[in-house]
Write a protein that binds this DNA or RNA. Structure first.
Lengths: 79, 79
DNA sequence: ATGTAGACTGATGTCGACG
DNA sequence: ACGTCGACATCAGTCTACA
């Protein structure tokens, strides 16, 4: 639970790489700042639901699936 | 997409009522402010992922399921 | 028991620049 | 192409109070 940001960052980075996007392209398409993508992926930010939905739509993945992965990662540890 | 907050608020309120909790009890158990729960349920706030997870744990519902419901509501309209 | 208002703190998210 | 820094604006979330 405390490391939720870290896990989410790892998941988002994984899908970004799978899509063959770099941070700049993801930032541009999602209309977010590149430095913010960097912060997110390194677990320095805890995004809002709306931001998550935007990123998921660009990464062409279901928010539900991201949350599912996040849940399992969190449950493994301290939730 | 623009109405994401509204839909999320409706969903959260639905589950809170199903659990027989009032806003004060939910606020206390989730360690959030009562007035914030009120704002959330009326779509005036866009919570972070962490806040969603906290609320879900008190409401004893999977975050994945909330997001799934939210997705379908959003997809119906403008996403 | 809930909605609302206002003032507030801290975190999210922006922007320009550098290594 | 990414991490980082600092300054900044905006919004999440708190608190007191009243209807």
């Amino acid at each position: 639970m405390s490391d939720l940001n870290i896990y989410l960052g790892q998941i988002l980075r994984k899908y970004r790489n799978e899509r063959g996007l770099n941070q700049e392209e993801l930032a541009f398409q999602s209309d977010l700042d590149r430095t913010y993508i960097s912060l997110l992926e390194r677990g320095k930010r805890n995004p809002t639901i709306k931001t998550l939905f935007i990123l998921c739509s660009v990464l062409d993945i279901s928010p539900e699936l991201i949350i599912k992965e996040l849940q399992t990662k969190v449950l493994e540890r301290d939730f």
